[in-house]
Design a binder for these strands. Sequence first.
DNA 1: TTTGGTTATGCATATTTTGCATAACGGTTA
DNA 2: TAACCGTTATGCAAAATATGCATAACCAAA
Lengths: 131, 131
Amino acid sequence: MRQHSPDVMSKPERLKLNYKFWIETQSGLSVLGEGKWKLLKAIRDTGSLKAAVEKMGYTYRQTWQNLKDIEEKLSFKLIEKSRGGEKGGETVLTSKGEHIVAFFDKLYADVEPRLNESFDRMVEDLNKIVD
Amino acid sequence: MRQHSPDVMSKPERLKLNYKFWIETQSGLSVLGEGKWKLLKAIRDTGSLKAAVEKMGYTYRQTWQNLKDIEEKLSFKLIEKSRGGEKGGETVLTSKGEHIVAFFDKLYADVEPRLNESFDRMVEDLNKIVD
DNA sequence: TTTGGTTATGCATATTTTGCATAACGGTTA
DNA sequence: TAACCGTTATGCAAAATATGCATAACCAAA
């Protein structure tokens, strides 16, 4: 069957730039980035993994596994979980968990403004190519 | 069966930071980043998709599909491919393909030095958390 | 000892990624 | 003009990941 490719010249669209930072192990294994940073904040704010997950729109199953894997890679705990009690259970950040949150706060505060400036400038060049 | 978790406190390892930039469509669809940038350079240098792919250690099948998808998202062609002939076929960059390569060259030259400086500074803070 | 809300986890299903195998091309050459 | 050869093109099976449902485990309080 002969089938020609879709016309690749038909829908010019303005482009943009995006970026991402994350922590990895020395061996290059990815550990955690912006998503888990925000999740940790949500855990801190709610005192509950379940509530944090719902707030973020994540699934409990996967997030629980992700956090377990992250702690394994880091070799220290980010959260302290307990079951039972009046509220059914709770999850709080460990001291190191708090530090990781604070680290990302600082990292983004430091780097994002300058990066966005560069990107705003460069995205003009980029869109000249499209036209 | 009762099975205790692996001891998460047992292998402290120095951490590092990493980052990534990429181009996306206005609607947030990821288009291409560092990998395809380097691939395009390899295509330019070799005149062949097959050779470029082998140079990069990618698989032909997937790379071919990726490039097709990227051109679809961009709505313009990055490469011009032909089959047959003495060399069996060849692939060269289009003018816009060249421009995209040049864009990434400039982007990384602009942004990387300052970013690496910030990261070197911040990674010290990060590893204070680990200890 | 019952209750209730949270954490913990097995497992089936869906989705994505890989990679093998093979077709299609077409300028060159005899 | 017909066979050749190295490249591009692509279907498809298999493997690896991701997703999400269902349900167990837990335990302070009532």
